[in-house]
Design a protein around this nucleic acid. Structure first.
Lengths: 340, 340
DNA sequence: GTGAAAGCGCTAACAG
DNA sequence: CTGTTAGCGCTTTCAC
């Protein structure tokens, strides 16, 4: 008598377990009266269905797995967790979070564990836009990729629209009168740097601005690297009046370089960046205008897409879909009109 | 024949399902020979035990729940997730992550969902040290509290040693010759501010430094608040030579104030802080010396403690334990000896 | 040391 | 619309 089960409810309500199951799950047909009665007695008895048993029988656990590389390691993409959980809760599913700590062996074990727990599907998430090779283990599981483009299997995926984001950022600077703009680019060969470069160049071109050689410098993703890279730039006679930074950490370094050069932001130098990592963007002085990487939205999209995939996993294979998610600008105080 | 089950393994190995179960789980008695054979055929067939079924029968799912307020919302405590997952993986359990979005109703639903999935226990985590009232729903579940002190139930909990951390930080400044130290304190009445104040005062006292009235100012937790609070302080004749900041964001504001006042860190002003939030501490120039809040370790401790609790949940109730976790100093470049 | 039988709590399939 | 029967895949109990 310890825990109340479906039989107890059935007994108390004077119906069969089947009817209770139908009434509570909404499947099958039950008269409004009995449905109501069942619900009442269930609540009265404090009935909590055992999802293990349900899942075992129905082959649907309403659990999804989230496997990430180091999404938890780095605070940047924290919002994908939030987005995933938000959407999951709304859909009535729960998420098992697992992270590989960048180790293929660990990842295999983790995915296997997820399988053993019979998850309905898996979100394979990266912490920044990259090409991903989906592990074989996932081959027979509904899967979506978040912030990455799968190379070896056609599954739905979402990545930020890198080109648009760069185009918008640079256009914003141009609209403020700037024509000498330097792109403080990431040094790695990743989709983000490729896409943003294209957007950068397109913005210049469409606004009729010459793309001279000195419009681009490289830095790795840290304030220190940004500072070091930007510093010499600002000491030149012909220095740029605006910077488009690859991310907020680099922008922070640019602030420091400006400080060292005795330049005021935004009066002497406008800065726009990418990430909208609030802790940095809000904390800098003046606050940093930045293009948001919409992690929360990506998380939401991923679970919605995954659930759709699970729904018709037996039915027609609909074409895998690619989602280039738009990146809005969050305007703060680091961009000012050019004064001659 | 779709999926291979325990019966298939039993058949192939020429033994009974019972024996397979025993051999794989290590329980019961099985001869080394058969054990080996079972393992081999299991691997050969690619057997993946169904944990749902196992859990249903054995009442042990090897799943634990992590319920947090907004731990995922804020990047600061991201490492507890990492620590929890790390320890969980090592122990062969998996974690269901859920977050309440600060809403009691949502939290109830989430905890109920966790129960339905028959989690073995729950880690109730907060994003900063605070008193917590455990929801009734958790009453009959093994529970530990992370970064909070339960008020209504005696369960194990872990919180940072606020007093020690402050004492160590301030002592560090004193050892560098500073005697005019201002504590840029948090404005909220939370355990952290209380504990750190005690540590601050004890450090002054033990080193024979007078606690004059102007050693403490208040700011809320943002760079802007830090800047605004610190700025007037630095313009006084009798300004402090060192700052102990409540956290890294406030310290960032202090950097900005120093900059505005034309003061160099650490030559003119030493700064030490709390959080060791690496994105900020490493990015500031010069890099910020900070007391680490050991979130990863707290995560590890929480799962280990929880698993112990689950193990002897039927046995003797051992006294609930409180863990004041030590906070190490991470030395960077923001503290220098006082030059007269 | 090994196996047969029972059953965890639920839902699917079908009958009425 | 409701109930009966069977069984999801495993572990437990208990006999051998």
């Amino acid at each position: 008598m310890r825990k109340v089960g479906i039989k107890d409810v059935a007994h108390a309500a004077g119906v069969s377990p089947t009817t209770v199951s139908h009434a509570l799950s909404g499947s099958g047909k039950v008269s409004p009266d009995t449905r109501k009665k069942v619900h009442e007695t269930a609540r009265a008895l404090g009935y909590t269905p055992n999802r293990l048993a349900a899942g075992l029988r129905s082959r649907r656990t309403n659990v999804i797995g989230l496997v990430s590389d180091e999404i938890a390691t780095t605070p940047f993409a924290t919002n994908v967790l939030l987005g995933v959980q938000h959407a999951a809760e709304k859909a009535g599913v729960i998420v098992m979070t697992v992270n590989s700590e960048r180790n293929a062996e660990t990842e295999k074990r983790q995915i296997t564990a997820l399988h053993q727990h019979q998850v309905d599907g898996i979100i394979y998430a990266r912490m920044y836009n990259q090409r991903v090779e989906l592990p074989e283990l996932l081959d027979s599981t509904p899967t979506v990729v978040l912030d990455g483009k799968p190379t070896n299997r056609a599954v739905p995926f979402v990545i930020p629209n890198e080109e648009q984001l760069a185009y918008d950022a640079v256009s914003h600077l141009i609209e403020h009168g700037h024509t000498k703009i330097t792109f403080v680019q990431n040094a790695d060969k990743i989709p983000a740097s490729r896409g943003r470069l294209i957007g950068f160049e397109r913005a210049l071109q469409e606004h009729g601005i010459a793309r001279s050689d000195n419009d681009l410098i490289l830095a790795s993703s840290s304030a220190e690297a940004g500072r070091t890279a930007v510093r010499p730039l600002l000491e030149r006679e012909d220095r740029p009046t605006a910077l488009f930074c690859f991310n907020d950490r680099i922008a922070m370094g640019a602030y420091q370089a400006a400080h060292l050069a005795g330049l005021a932001i935004p009066e002497d130098l406008s800065v726009i960046s990418v990430d909208n990592f609030e802790i940095i963007a809000d904390s800098l002085y003046p606050a940093l205008t930045s293009m948001e990487l919409p992690h929360f939205q990506m998380g939401v999209w991923a679970v919605e897409r995954l659930l759709a995939l699970i729904e018709n996993s037996e039915e027609d294979e609909e074409e895998p879909c690619e989602y280039l998610i738009g990146c809005p600008m969050v305007v703060r105080d680091s961009v000012a009109p050019l004064v001659k």
